[in-house]
């Protein structure tokens, strides 16, 4: 690590002020940022720790929306009865992130802000059509993710909450990368109250998380595993590494989508 100033505000406005400083960066659970700092791959001059801000934490049901504070840990989501009742797929998702230590530190805001192409939450945010609320504005998930590790967040902008429309059914089917155990290719499948089906795919795309329109349409008109068979999922645009070729990832998109359909049938 390089030296940095450490700032631990207890309210959001103080955090936002601190983040205006040159070279300041927000610190959530630190489960991504701390390893990056240890490798000296980032050199913020000030770290603004968000974990002391109570208003960023917590899970609330508001009508047909579930609102999760940006500083809520994966562990809290995994253990929440409200989440289990409203969006069981999010419980599946959160409970499969990393290990207990990671889940008890890592936050939903940090995960979305980081937009790792193999991270889990981005698939849920896209598939559920979530709205990402910041200290400045509200951003639709479809506009939020901008490719690998890129989002529409501006410098110093803090994710304060994520608003998830409550679907009629949801599931997360994770296929783990053998080493990191992040997603090699995973599917978040949601049946929305208007009858539409949304499919978020993470781990697979060369440009990061995406929705698969072909699968959504096929499943929207015929919610069955056989409907998935008829959809062609192209290898083109999928990423390629030690653990998966584009063809393999394309195959996994279909296989995991079918499993998601079976899980909800």
């Amino acid at each position: 690590m390089y030296n940095f100033e450490f700032n631990r505000p207890t309210d959001l406005s103080a955090a936002v002020d601190a983040l205006r400083g040159d070279g300041a960066q927000a610190l959530g659970g630190g489960q991504t940022l701390i390893p990056v700092l240890k490798q000296r791959l980032a050199a913020p001059t000030t770290l603004v720790d968000l974990t002391g801000i109570e208003s960023l934490k917590g899970i609330r049901r508001m009508g047909d929306m579930l609102v999760i504070g940006g500083g809520t840990t994966h562990g809290a989501v995994a253990a929440s009865g409200d989440v289990a009742a409203a969006i069981p797929g999010l419980v599946e998702l959160a409970s499969k992130i990393g290990d207990p230590q990671v889940r008890n530190r890592g936050t939903i805001g940090g995960s979305l802000a980081n937009n790792d192409p193999a991270a889990c939450y981005p698939a849920a945010a896209l598939a559920l059509g979530a709205t990402i609320e910041t200290n400045q504005r509200k951003i639709e998930a479809d506009d939020f993710f901008q490719g690998l590790y890129a989002t529409s967040l501006e410098e110093g902008e803090v994710i304060t909450a994520v608003h998830f429309p409550i679907p009629t059914a949801s599931t997360y089917q994770k296929f783990e990368q053998p080493a990191s155990r992040f997603s090699l290719t995973s599917i978040f499948l949601a049946k929305m109250s208007d009858g539409s089906v949304r499919v978020g795919v993470t781990g697979a795309g060369a440009d990061g998380v995406f929705r698969h329109e072909g699968l959504e349409q096929a499943l929207g008109s015929n919610f069955s595993a056989s409907a998935v068979d008829g959809v062609s999922v192209a290898a083109e645009g999928m990423s390629n590494d030690l653990h998966g070729t584009p063809e393999y990832r394309a195959n996994l998109v279909k296989v995991m989508t079918k499993r998601a359909v079976e899980a909800l049938s």
Binding site: A179, S180, L242, H243
Partner: peptide, 13 residues
């Protein structure tokens, strides 16, 4: 070394 960390070097759990 492509598998130069636990992100890519798979250890048995």
């Amino acid at each position: 070394l492509v598998a130069g960390s636990y992100m890519d070097y798979a250890m048995p759990l």
